[in-house]
Amino acid sequence: EGEHPFTLIVTDPAGNASDPSDPYTIIVDTTAPVAPVITSVFDNQGAVTGNLAAGDTTDDAQPQISGTAEPGSTLIIYDNGVEIGRETVAADGTWTHLPVPVLDNGSHVLTVEAMDAAGNVSPPSDPFGFELISGGVA
């Protein structure tokens, strides 16, 4: 794990050595990010708006999904186990996603995973489930 700088020194037959080259650094990263967190699913459509609680029913086919994850990682958003989008996690560890296309009527269970620059993927977040009663209309 970590940075590994490599340099070269050339030595001629007489034993004269060159100055070291500029370092070429590789980073070994075999550790996956910790599981990201879905902190809110926000309904901003219809008569009742605000943050949903797990298990709620909504009429918003495009709720704003937000949370936290490893800064700079790529967040992968799943609905019922199917990828619905990706976002880059901000330097402060926050992310937001607005589903496009809009979600369909029915039950939805959201989970997210974080993938770091080395391709290591986190465990999934805890699931967040809700019911949509008017899908297809944003």
Score class of each variant (00 low, 15 high):
98 L>H: 04
21 S>N: 05
101 P>I: 09
47 A>E: 12
84 I>L: 12
87 E>N: 08
7 T>Q: 14
96 T>N: 02
125 S>K: 05
96 T>L: 02
136 G>N: 07
90 A>N: 15
132 L>Q: 05
91 A>L: 13
75 L>G: 06
39 T>M: 04
73 S>H: 01
68 T>E: 08
25 T>V: 11
129 G>F: 14
32 A>W: 12
80 N>L: 11
95 W>F: 14
88 T>M: 07
10 V>F: 14
36 P>E: 08
51 N>M: 07
100 V>F: 04
121 V>L: 08
81 G>N: 04
131 E>T: 15
108 H>I: 01
109 V>D: 13
101 P>G: 13
47 A>H: 06
92 D>Q: 04
34 V>T: 10
32 A>P: 01
89 V>C: 03
14 A>W: 10
129 G>P: 00
64 Q>I: 15
97 H>F: 00
129 G>R: 11
101 P>Q: 14
110 L>F: 13
75 L>H: 03
128 F>T: 07
119 G>M: 13
121 V>I: 15
51 N>Y: 00
49 T>F: 03
110 L>Q: 07
95 W>M: 09
37 V>N: 06
15 G>T: 02
102 V>W: 01
115 M>D: 01
9 I>L: 08
28 V>E: 06
111 T>S: 06
126 D>K: 15
5 P>T: 08
44 N>E: 14
66 S>L: 11
24 Y>E: 09
9 I>E: 08
5 P>M: 07
71 P>M: 05
81 G>W: 10
122 S>L: 06
87 E>R: 10
58 T>F: 07
22 D>G: 03
89 V>K: 04
124 P>Y: 12
42 F>D: 08
45 Q>V: 13
80 N>H: 08
8 L>H: 06
94 T>I: 10
21 S>P: 04
115 M>Q: 10
84 I>C: 02
47 A>G: 12
114 A>N: 07
67 G>T: 06
33 P>Q: 09
132 L>C: 04
114 A>L: 06
33 P>N: 13
1 E>Y: 09
92 D>A: 12
14 A>K: 14
81 G>S: 10
96 T>W: 03
105 N>K: 07
105 N>C: 00
119 G>D: 11
120 N>I: 01
10 V>S: 13
93 G>N: 11
71 P>H: 15
84 I>W: 01
17 A>P: 05
118 A>D: 14
77 I>S: 03
16 N>V: 14
66 S>K: 10
13 P>H: 13
91 A>R: 11
26 I>G: 05
49 T>W: 04
133 I>D: 12
59 D>C: 12
1 E>F: 00
43 D>Y: 10
102 V>Y: 02
90 A>T: 15
104 D>R: 04
